[in-house]
């Protein structure tokens, strides 16, 4: 099982850049080849969301017990305004990252994909950001989206990785 991360790394180099389904993943790789337990991923926001056109960094840490235990994944602190993400820490509330819902048949690519899908479908019933969850619950999409756009473009919550006009 110790080779699992190495196998994933090898498989990813074939999948990424070829499979159009994962075209949004700019990178998903270990921070250093010496330590395969620490990974980082750079993704672009999904289309038709206020995150589109922005890039986000995910920090991934797989424990000694991975894949029998889920990896720890979070966004870079103060970069992701989302109702299921704690803005200050970047912590993500997602069931598959929870030990009770995790299965060892999942891999890091699945995890990143699940998080990317979460960006497009916020889950207001288990919020870490109450303000945004309230807007989702009230069905006020335009207020929700413009609040996120405001934060992403350097609004008062802090500066985020905005992609400059190309």
């Amino acid at each position: 099982m110790s080779q699992r991360l190495a196998k994933e790394y090898r498989a990813l180099s074939k999948t990424l850049g070829r499979d159009p389904e994962y075209a949004y993943i700019i990178s998903l790789a270990p921070v250093s080849e010496e330590n395969l337990r620490k990974w980082e991923s750079l993704i672009t926001g999904p289309p038709d969301t206020p995150y589109f056109g922005h890039e986000f960094t995910l920090q991934i840490e797989a424990s000694e017990a991975y894949p029998l235990e889920p990896p720890k994944v979070q966004f870079q602190a103060r970069c992701m305004p989302h109702c299921n993400v704690d803005f200050d820490s970047g912590r993500i509330c997602l069931s598959v990252l929870d030990a009770a819902h995790w299965t060892p048949a999942w891999d890091l690519l699945h995890v990143v994909h699940a998080i990317w899908l979460l960006l497009a479908s916020p889950e207001p019933d288990s919020p870490l950001d109450v303000d945004l969850a309230c807007l989702v619950r009230a069905g006020d999409r335009s207020a929700h989206n413009s609040l996120i756009a405001y934060y992403l473009n350097g609004g008062s919550r802090g500066h985020c990785g905005h992609v400059s006009e190309r």
Binding site: Q3, P104, A105, D107
Partner: peptide
């Protein structure tokens, strides 16, 4: 030949 364990991926 191609069958692999989905836990260890071997």
């Amino acid at each position: 030949g191609a069958d692999a364990c989905s836990i260890c991926c071997c």
